[in-house]
């Protein structure tokens, strides 16, 4: 394998960008996902429908299409979006839809009897959410959230099309500079693999902890 130390340095930097982009996507996506989930679960019928539509649209439209839409369309209506904003925006909007579903699934995963037990004991609605539902739902949602993070790391390779210097883009640059595409892309792929295996390992750890805690 002939990837120079120089190239590896670039790739390592790019890996940082990939992780940072995905973290931003997860964080903003979590805010969006929480809002959408609350709208769907305890909003009125109009809000619930809106939340449902959000999930349907942003899970249905491929991320690449979404990214190009933001990057090419918004300038037409007079909003010049920097590539970085387009990238993070696209990742967040898309991830928000998936996270909303994860959170909703986790809430459904709390047995119905728990709500009934708390109500029977005279818990207020706020206490019910704060003390009973949320702690359990968040615990349930840890493994799928880690999984979502891994998917986002992979999805972030698509922001290379708007020119952000993350792993995929840098691999393309190295490939065209060195005329060694195989080595360049395999090296880039290994960086992704390293990140994702690390995350999967952490996820396994978190899952075991969560299981132990649930006992």
């Amino acid at each position: 394998m002939l990837v120079s130390a120089h190239s590896l340095g670039y790739l390592a930097q790019a890996a940082g960008v990939t992780v940072a982009l995905s973290l931003a996507g997860i964080a903003f996506g979590f805010v969006i996902g929480t809002l959408v989930c609350v709208a769907r679960v305890s909003g009125g019928p109009a809000l619930a429908r809106l939340g449902g539509a959000y999930v349907s649209v942003f899970r249905g439209v491929p991320l690449l299409v979404l990214l190009l839409f933001i990057y090419y369309f918004l300038p037409i209506v007079g909003l010049d979006v920097p590539a970085l904003v387009a990238a993070i925006g696209g990742l967040s909007l898309s991830s928000g839809a998936y996270q909303a579903e994860i959170l909703r699934g986790a809430l459904n995963g709390v047995p119905r009897g728990q709500t009934e037990a708390a109500t029977a004991l005279g818990y207020s609605n706020l206490d019910l959410w704060r003390r009973i539902l949320l702690p359990q739902a968040l615990r349930i949602s840890i493994p799928p959230m880690i999984n979502e993070f891994i998917l986002l790391i992979k999805a972030s390779s698509l922001v290379s099309v708007v020119g952000i210097a993350e792993i995929t883009r840098v691999s393309m640059n190295i490939a065209s500079m060195t005329y060694r595409p195989l080595e360049a892309y395999v090296a880039g792929g290994l960086f992704y693999l390293a990140i994702n295996l690390t995350l999967a390992g952490l996820g396994g750890l978190a899952e075991r902890r969560a299981l132990a805690g649930a006992r």
Partner: peptide, 19 residues
Amino acid sequence: RGTPFLMQLFILYAGGPSL
């Protein structure tokens, strides 16, 4: 499962000829 689809395509399409 651990690497992006786009990366795999590049390896096959652009990297393939080296093999």
